[in-house]
Write a protein that binds this DNA or RNA. Structure first.
Length: 880
RNA sequence: GGGCGGUUAGCUCAGCUGGUUCAGAGCACCUGCCUUACAAGCAGGGGGUCACUGGUUCGAAUCCAGUACCGCCCACCA
């Protein structure tokens, strides 16, 4: 490095060192005799692009992995991407739509060709972006959840659980989007309060032969067009108003079909009329009531949201048209009692904005009971820790109520379910078509390959990502209990830490624990660190539609990756949402510059064979202690995953202690040289600081570390050992603190009196001895004089603890002002003393409080007395 | 509606098992400085009834109960 510029320029530095790290394969890990430290990346969507949430998450991951590497562990961070079936398929569908192509028209095979092409074109961009951020992933280990080996793992897992009897096919109500003609997940349904009507309808009691009597009940519904699908009327068994209905049958208006009156606790007595029409095919809750009471399921709405022939009336009408028409018909028939305005939450499709239609369909499920119980135990026993701990409660609640996992999706992009149907509708489950044919022929020897039809659905994306901590190392393992883990899996599993958002605690974290326990008999990671959600300054979620999410790459370009990393970490305590503000990144950039310039100073030192100044000697002794003290704190913070606290501790050590105090203390006068011992110590301190902060700021630290000494090609700060705290004498820190107070006192006087820093002053200290006097002289620009008494009123005094100090100022002093100041202070201490004495004279206090506390109070009393004495003497002096 | 968590300085947060002058940090703010490492800087400074009410205790930001508000997860009243 040549002359250092006055400002740090990240751009020139970052690409250079990342290329260097890659060229030397510093990120690559292979099993060896060292202790492993492993992280698997939360795989981002393969076609996704980097957003601020990724920046936060991956910065944290990188800090942990770099720290572990410097701690001497064999650190391995496995990167990769997720095929993200729904998100990716949506994107491909949208792109095809632009070209006027519908996926149904081109068919599965052709569609998948487009999808793969899309993946090749857009896939992995995000991994390139992570490099810009400085992430030290082992790129040779990059995985993709839909690559052949990992897809096989998924299929094997399915077969394994099917054989175990935990996978079954069942009917479930899904969120049907009648425009997109697909089921959508719960997350893709947006509930919006919608203005509608509450129709009160009269159902006549049947005489038993399908004829109406003159008795009736009234139900309230928002969906009158579904009455033809009613299977029962339900009332609460405790509702006295409806006791008379017990065992009765009623007639559905307009079509006169007879349905029973049943009783179920689900019905709220004080809502609506207390009578609920039960429509199992078109309402989730009604479906569940139907199950409990064995009601028939009659579907009258088709995939397009139109009434079908089972409705008997209004066949072919759209559900909303049908609603209007049927209301009129009901009114004419005399069944409409009244119509109320009503606002209720209605589910809309996130993508098409169509009103979601609950629809029954056949789905594949995985039984959760046993898996959840085991995975709950993993966390409750502490084999896996959650940080922050509060998520254990959330986790427990979910695991204790886990419903079977619906693993099928009506999509094409993903691992296709390995169930093969025979012509008679029965099916076999096998890992390959060949095996399936064999199995089918065992049932019916006449079966040929073309007779078998594979299930159309693919598996939920999470059904592949839950294997991630295992499959990235050994894809053969999932689904194969007898398979011995390969070398990588045996070495790297279980991984150490997982950093992820709390929003996927169930989708992903819980299920990885299940898979880990099932296939490895061991938890997949020891700690899960939950980050918060990145929000903007005013608390809104970052989103594309709001346009409040900055592009991280622009930020890196402007401020540098180190600055962006600092900016994200500064405000990120675990589990709290992050309020993103560009100001934090500017703070990070300022810190880079500060580090840069502190090095410029040291690098510029002329070294000469001169004796070390006493101030420099004291400063070195102090900073060595301070460094050790801080290292211990930083280690403690890291051990508790308090990353932002660790960063802040180093930040203050670097800026306040090293730059503002240490460097100023050892800095020679302009043009003067520095002695060799001081130069050496200073560079050593600086190197320690670089190493401490490297995990957070990888680029600038590498740049400077390479410059402070002769380095060979292939050397890197990445593998420099983390500085260790050494034993130190606490008195060193205490003495320095006293001296610093004295310096601050003098500076206060200067500020108050408008005296420039260059003007030498005389400081009288009323004491027989005081620590670090050369330091005080250097830092405060004074000559210190130890005196017995302060008889000269021409000056300004202040107290350092109980020691009185006095800056001599000829003709500049306002005695009256000094007097007022001292009197005010005296009052304060007197009040304080009173408080302490009240406590000490309280018998209950002295009887109950521990000795330590009482002693502290006595010391406070003594200190206060001493200060009062000093102040009183001073006041007497001033009054003369 | 059920569960969980929160409320401390203008902002973001720390404060572990009640007791050190415990009321803190960073940023922001105010004042004075372009003092040859750094104005992305230096020095100094102001600022909080620890949400509210009650209780336990010699002693409460800290423990307990209630109230108010906020956030998250789940279920989302036909």
């Amino acid at each position: 490095m040549k002359e250092l510029a006055a400002k740090y320029s990240a751009k020139e530095v970052e690409d250079k060192w990342y290329a260097y790290w890659l060229a030397h394969k510093f990120f690559h890990s292979e099993p060896n005799e060292k202790q492993p430290y492993t992280i698997v990346i939360p795989p981002p969507n393969v076609t996704g692009i980097l957003h601020m949430g990724h920046v936060l998450n991956n910065t944290l991951n990188d800090v942990l992995i770099r720290k572990a590497r410097m701690d001497g562990k064999n650190a391995c961070w496995v990167p990769g991407t997720d095929h993200a079936s729904i998100a990716t398929e949506n994107k491909v569908v949208a792109k095809l739509r632009e070209q006027g192509i519908r996926k149904e028209d081109i068919g599965r095979e052709e569609f998948l060709k487009h999808a793969w092409a899309w993946k090749e074109e857009h896939g992995g961009i995000i991994l390139q972006q992570l490099k810009k951020l400085g992430c030290s992933c082992d790129w040779d280990r990059t995985r993709f959840t839909m690559e052949p080996a990992l897809s096989e793992a998924v299929i094997n897992t399915f077969v394994y659980f099917y054989r175990k009897g935990w996978i079954y096919k069942g009917v479930r109500m899904v969120n049907w989007d009648p425009e997109a003609l697909t089921a959508v997940s719960d997350d893709e349904v947006i509930h919006k309060d919608t203005q509608s009507h509450f129709y009160h309808l009269r159902y006549y009691i049947s005489d038993g032969n399908g004829n109406p009597t003159d008795k009736f009940l009234v139900i309230a519904t928002t969906r009158p067009e579904t009455i033809m699908a009613d299977a029962a009327i339900c009332v609460n068994p405790k509702d006295e108003r409806h006791f008379w209905l017990k065992g009765k049958k009623v007639l559905i208006p307009l079509i006169n079909r007879e349905i029973p009156v049943i009783e179920d606790d689900y019905v709220e007595m004080d809502f609506g009329t207390g009578c609920l029409k039960v429509t199992p095919a078109h309402d989730v809750h009604d479906y569940e009531i139907g199950l409990r009471h064995n009601l028939p399921v009659l579907e009258i709405i088709d995939d397009h949201g139109k009434l079908n022939e089972k409705a008997q009336i209004l066949v072919g009408e759209d559900r909303f048209v049908a609603r209007k028409k049927i209301v009129k018909m009901l009114e004419e028939a005399g069944n409409l009692v009244k119509v109320e305005d009503y606002t209720s939450p209605v589910g809309y499709s996130e993508r098409t904005d169509a009103v979601i239609e609950p629809k029954l369909s056949a789905q594949w499920f995985l039984k959760m009971e046993s898996l959840a119980a085991t995975a709950l135990e993993t966390v409750l026993s502490g084999r896996t820790n959650f940080i922050p701990e509060k998520y254990v409660n959330t986790y427990r609640h979910w695991m204790e109520n886990a419903r079977d996992w619906c693993i099928s999706r009506q999509l094409w992009w993903g691992q296709r379910i390995p169930a093969y149907y025979l012509p008679d509708g029965s099916f076999v489950v096998e890992a390959t078509p060949e095996a399936a044919l064999k199995a089918a022929q065992a049932i019916n020897p006449a079966i040929k390959a073309e007779d078998l039809k594979q299930d159309e659905d693919v598996l939920d994306t999470w059904f592949s990502s839950w294997l991630w901590p295992i499959s990235v190392f050994d894809p053969e393992k999932p689904g194969h209990p007898e398979h011995q883990p390969n070398k990588d899996l045996a070495y790297y599993y279980p991984t150490n830490d997982l950093v992820t958002g709390p929003d996927i605690i169930f989708f992903w974290v819980a299920r990885m624990i299940m898979a880990g326990e099932e296939f490895m008999g061991k938890e997949p990671f020891s700690n899960v660190y939950f980050t918060g959600i990145v929000r903007d300054k005013i608390g809104r979620k970052m989103s594309k539609t709001l346009g409040n999410s900055p592009n991280p790459l622009d930020l890196i370009d402007t401020y540098g990756a180190d600055a962006v990393r600092i900016g994200m970490l500064l405000c990120s305590s675990a589990g709290n949402d992050i309020f993103y503000d560009e100001a934090q990144i500017k703070q990070g950039a300022a810190f880079c510059n500060k580090i840069w310039n502190s090095y410029r100073l040291v690098k510029g030192f002329q070294v000469a064979d001169i004796p070390q100044t006493p101030a420099a000697k004291l400063a070195i002794e102090w900073f060595a202690a301070k460094l050790s003290e801080t290292i211990a704190q930083v280690e403690d913070h890291y051990s508790k995953f308090r990353i932002s606290d660790a960063l802040m501790a180093i930040y203050k050590l670097f800026w306040d202690d090293y730059c503002s105090w240490y460097l100023e203390a050892i800095k020679p006068a302009y043009g003067q040289p520095v002695d060799p011992a001081t130069q050496k110590a200073t560079l050593a301190f600086f190197e320690s600081l670089l190493k401490l902060i490297h995990p957070v700021m990888p680029f600038i630290t590498e740049e400077l570390w390479q410059d402070i000494a002769e380095r060979k090609e292939g050397e890197t700060i990445m593998y420099a050992p983390t500085p260790k705290a050494e034993a130190f004498d606490p008195a060193v820190l205490e003495n320095f603190a006293l001296a610093a107070e004295a310096v601050n006192g003098v500076r206060g006087v200067r500020a108050q009196r408008n005296i420039g820093p260059k003007e030498q002053l005389n400081l009288k200290v009323k004491a027989a001895a005081f620590p670090c006097i050369p330091l005080i002289e250097k830092m405060a620009g004074v000559t210190v004089e130890l005196v017995d008494g302060l008889d000269d009123a021409q000056g300004v005094g202040f107290l350092v603890r109980t020691t009185e100090m006095f800056v001599k100022l000829e003709g500049l002093v306002n005695v009256q002002e000094e007097l007022e100041k001292a009197t005010k202070e005296l009052e304060r201490f007197k009040g304080f003393l009173q408080g302490v004495r009240a406590k000490l004279s309280n018998e209950k206090f002295t009887a109950h409080a521990p000795a330590q506390v009482i002693e502290n109070e006595r010391k406070k009393e003594a200190d206060a007395l001493s200060k009062i004495e000093t102040l009183e003497a001073k006041i007497a002096q001033l009054k003369k």
